[in-house]
Structure formats: structure tokens, C-alpha cells
């Protein structure tokens, strides 16, 4: 039990720290790397729950493919500079977001902890998690019997993704037709101007790293 507890605490901490990193780091590259941490932590938790196959594809598909895709796009677009987090165009949205986020957490926890057994459903409705058979077999059997239809139509989903990705990234940056309709459509919008004004105002009293920034860095370092 001690070992399981230890595994849970450590990987749980990595998950949370990674999640916070995604939200709080200013540089998209750091965000992506934090996401890897969370994904990895979740994979460990999958292992801890006996879902070995899922843990494997979690690492391969998520960390290996999806995050790499993120990084690739970040580099392609050259947006690996820090986001300007000092300026907030929508006043109060951060506080509101945190309040809503905490209430969301609270509500979910009430729902999850409302009954001592947590789950109220019928056990083993699909097939029991028989430890004798490898979980690849179990998932495979379910996929090709009960979920055969869902499995087959994911092909359509992937086709759409391919067609869409090709179509969208092929779009040529011609002169848009709706510039008249939205005169600020192609150039910096009102918000961008406001942002510059704020940056000028702020740059007077900013020397060295932001205190909040340092805190986050320390936080992240501490938890890993």
C-alpha cells in the first residue's frame, strides 16, 4: 500500500504541477513541455490502475505525437516568445475564471464524493477486468465486438482530420475580401493598440523578472 500511495502522490503532483505549468508559464514551449509532464503523470497513474495498454498509447500517441505536433507548430510559426501576460484586455476575467474554476471543482467533488462507494452503476456491464487475461486482449475483444461500429467510424473522423488539416494549412494568404466590412481586420485591432499603450505604461516600473513569474518557476521546480 505504501508503494501505491507513493506512486500516486508523486505522479499526482507531477500531473498537477504540469497542469499548472500549462496554464501559468508564459512561453508556449514551456507550456507544451509542462503538458508532457501531465501526460506522463497520467500514464503512470494508468499503470498504477492496471491499464498498461492505455499507458503505452498515452505516451506514444499523446506525448509522442500530439505534443510534438504542438511543438512543431510553435516552431513553424515562430511563436516561441513569451506571451505578454501583464496586459489583460478583458478586465477581471482572470479572477472570474479562477472563481468559476474553483466552483467547477467544488461541484464535481460534491458529485463525486456524494456517496461512499462513489460509483452506483452495475458492475462489469461490458466485461470484467479479469487479471488473468492481458488488458490488450480485453480491450481488443471489446473494440471488435461491442464497439465495432464506433471503431470503424473513427476512420471517417481521421479522414476528416486529414482533409481538414490539408485544406486549412493550404489556404493562401491572399488579400481578404472582407477588409471593407471590417477595416481593422487585417491589421492590428483595437486591442493590439491598447496592448501597446499598456505595455509602455508598464515598462516603466518593470525591472528584472516578474515576482509572479519567479514564483511559478519555483513552484514548478519544486514539484518536479
Amino acid at each position: 500500500m505504501r508503494v501505491e500511495m507513493f506512486v500516486f502522490v508523486v505522479s499526482g503532483a507531477i500531473c498537477v504541477a504540469g497542469a499548472l505549468g500549462v496554464v501559468l508559464f508564459r512561453n508556449p514551449v514551456h507550456n507544451a513541455l509542462s503538458l508532457v509532464a501531465t501526460l506522463f503523470g497520467v500514464a503512470v497513474l494508468f499503470v498504477a490502475q492496471g491499464a498498461y495498454f492505455l499507458a503505452a498509447i498515452q505516451v506514444i500517441v499523446y506525448a509522442g505525437a500530439i505534443v510534438v505536433l504542438f511543438l512543431f507548430v510553435i516552431m513553424l510559426l515562430g511563436v516561441d516568445q513569451d506571451d505578454d501576460v501583464r496586459f489583460e484586455p478583458i478586465p477581471g476575467i482572470r479572477i472570474a475564471a479562477v472563481i468559476v474554476g474553483i466552483s467547477l471543482l467544488g461541484m464535481s467533488l460534491i458529485a463525486l464524493l456524494s456517496s461512499p462507494d462513489v460509483v452506483t452503476g452495475a458492475p462489469s456491464a461490458l466485461a470484467p477486468l479479469d487479471p488473468a487475461t492481458p488488458d490488450v486482449n480485453r480491450i481488443g475483444a471489446a473494440l471488435f465486438t461491442d464497439y465495432i461500429y464506433a471503431f470503424e467510424i473513427t476512420a471517417v473522423l481521421l479522414t476528416i482530420a486529414v482533409v481538414g488539416a490539408v485544406m486549412l494549412s493550404r489556404q493562401s494568404p491572399e488579400v481578404p475580401l472582407d477588409t471593407e466590412e471590417f477595416p481593422d481586420g487585417t491589421m492590428a485591432s483595437e486591442l493590439a493598440i491598447r496592448r501597446e499603450e499598456t505595455s509602455v505604461a508598464d515598462s516603466v516600473d518593470t525591472d528584472g523578472p516578474e515576482p509572479a513569474d519567479a514564483e511559478i518557476a519555483a513552484d514548478a521546480a519544486g514539484s518536479e
Binding site: A150, I153, T154, V156, L157, I160, A161, V163, G164, M167, L168, Q171, S172, E174, V175, P176, L177, D178, T179, E181, F182, G185, T186
Partner: peptide, 23 residues
């Protein structure tokens, strides 16, 4: 859920397909 995603992702793309409109 899978049906919903097939439906929606295709429509997300269609919505963005007019390459000559910023909007």
C-alpha cells in the same frame, strides 16, 4: 460521442474554409 465529433470537426473546418475572408 464519436458521431458528434465527426459531425462537428467537419463543420469546424467548413466554417473556416473561405480562405479569402478573415472572418
Amino acid at each position: 460521442f464519436v458521431g458528434l465529433e465527426i459531425l462537428s470537426i467537419a463543420v469546424y473546418i467548413l466554417a473556416a474554409m473561405h480562405s479569402r475572408r478573415v472572418t
